[in-house]
Nucleic acid binder design. Sequence first.
DNA 1: GATCGATATGCGTAAAAATACCTATCGACT
DNA 2: AGTCGATAGGTATTTTTACGCATATCGATC
Lengths: 123, 123
Amino acid sequence: MKPPRSSRNDVFLRYKLWLSAVSGEGIIGEGQYLLLRMVEEKGSLKAAADELGTSYRKAWGDIKNAEELLGYELTDKHRGGKDGGKSVLTNKAKNLLEAYDALHKKMDIAIEDAYDDFKEQIK
Amino acid sequence: MKPPRSSRNDVFLRYKLWLSAVSGEGIIGEGQYLLLRMVEEKGSLKAAADELGTSYRKAWGDIKNAEELLGYELTDKHRGGKDGGKSVLTNKAKNLLEAYDALHKKMDIAIEDAYDDFKEQIK
DNA sequence: GATCGATATGCGTAAAAATACCTATCGACT
DNA sequence: AGTCGATAGGTATTTTTACGCATATCGATC
């Protein structure tokens, strides 16, 4: 019995989805989504960055950038205290993440549907 | 009468869709799609690259890369002759472009549908 | 068989994006 | 009041990616 002939050079479909400003500049993509979710879980930006294996500098810059483009804060930031400080998601941020989640789920379903037709068409 | 409050920091949804190899390496994205369509129209890779404002070198490299990953030729290439040479899309390439088109249309519809819900959810 | 222009490809350079480094500041807690 | 660790942010460095340059090759047409 022969193996399917497309086993070696098989193609896959990938996509990226992100929020952008009118300028085209990216605001929230997969990375920022994960970062914000991690902030939510860890309670601090530093801990989130460490956990994701990225630098604090980048994480901080990404969030600041997103906040500037959105025009509102994504995290409530606190310095000082025994633990040095903390970051907590704003309600708007939580809302945004939920919406992003829902959006991504819909797109995942759409692409899965389309993928079958696509493969049929190119074979 | 007040303008809608989201006129300045409005957000948009953007997405990219591409074919990738198992390795994750990109094969065909928007750029390659346009390039191949232009080759189809112009009958030569050079003319296509010129028209799109990119270099022949890059265009050639992109197509070669895609062909290697796919495991088949996207263009029939001819050197010599009065016009120096030409490139013509293979049937497989035409097929692929059609499938890519259909896929993109479906995704455009899906994202348009999801966008309304998204905006409602974050406002 | 000489010509001409597109295909073919290596390689050096430049532009851009990501990452790293460093130093300051804040404030709840002890 | 002193400490500690996270937030804050400027600047340098590295890595990646694209672009440009140069040069060879091919072959239908004349």
